[in-house]
Design a binder for these strands. Structure first.
Lengths: 151, 151
DNA sequence: TATTGTTATACTCTATAACTATA
DNA sequence: TATAGTTATAGAGTATAACAATA
């Protein structure tokens, strides 16, 4: 048989495991893993348009809009008029949203610790580098990554 | 700021990019990326119960059932009574399903090539190993991986 | 003309809980 | 008693296409 998924399947298994575990951890707080990702993209006082936000969290404008409606309803984000572009919205966290993001970040720490405990710091670097390369190539698009880490 | 998602975000970006690109590639054939994963789990003549299937594709019985209903409707899979366990179903590909899986596998090859072109064979091994370890740890469960590859 | 966001719409995947039938 | 699968149900995320307002 020619079947040899390997890398794709492994990627899937790892991501979905992370996603599920994160979801489970946040159930009590009534926030999904995806919503956490969005909140975190706005965490350090970032103010983004919905399109920028979509890029950061590997989503699309339509989905982001749906998510923002939910998060707005919970009082975690606000959408102000963009200062220079009247078409755009300036999305940011509310005070409540900031607090919740911190709470979620803390609640998720054990999961991140578990991930990093699987590998050496060097391996983690290689892993992140390769994942970013792949994401880049597969997106036919720029890199959706953050600033360099301290880890 | 303490923010440093890095690995989780990179994992997300890579997986979602793969998922989207795969979906896009299969649109014309009216099959989703997830359905492809399921079909491929059954590809080499495998006959699995729905629970086993769920484990293989990192999903759950309820979701698998929903997927199987769709795939049955398309004529790609069949669910026979299990030979030894009357509660269980023996899920397998139909002839049409096998043909479609091969077609999809072929159609997806360029995507897999692109992924592997991002790294050396050694790096690919490291990557897969680390991803599997992570999936394993995060699942609090056994390893959802295939046989060793030739790559 | 191109772009940001909205709206409408639809579908897949996800997941829980209660249920049945077998083991 | 535990397990395999079903059912009902609900919701999140995804995505496309047509549209309005603005650049």
């Amino acid at each position: 048989m020619e079947t040899e998924p390997e890398l794709p399947l492994a990627l899937r298994a790892a991501y979905l495991a992370l996603h599920r575990k994160t979801d489970a951890r946040f159930t009590k707080l009534d926030v999904t893993a995806d919503q956490f990702v969005l909140l975190t993209a706005l965490s350090d006082g970032q103010v983004l348009t919905q399109r920028e936000l979509a890029g950061r969290i590997s989503s699309d404008p339509s989905t982001v809009r749906a998510m923002l409606v939910l998060l707005e309803r919970k009082g975690f984000v606000k959408r102000d008029v963009h200062p220079t572009d009247l078409r755009a919205k300036a999305v940011s966290l509310t005070t409540v949203g900031k607090r919740m993001q911190k709470k979620l970040w803390k609640a998720g720490q054990p999961i991140r610790d578990e991930m990093y405990r699987c590998m050496s710091p060097d391996e983690a670097d290689v892993l992140v580098t390769l994942l970013c390369k792949m994401a880049c190539v597969l997106s036919d698009v720029s890199v959706p990554v953050q600033a360099p880490s301290k880890r």
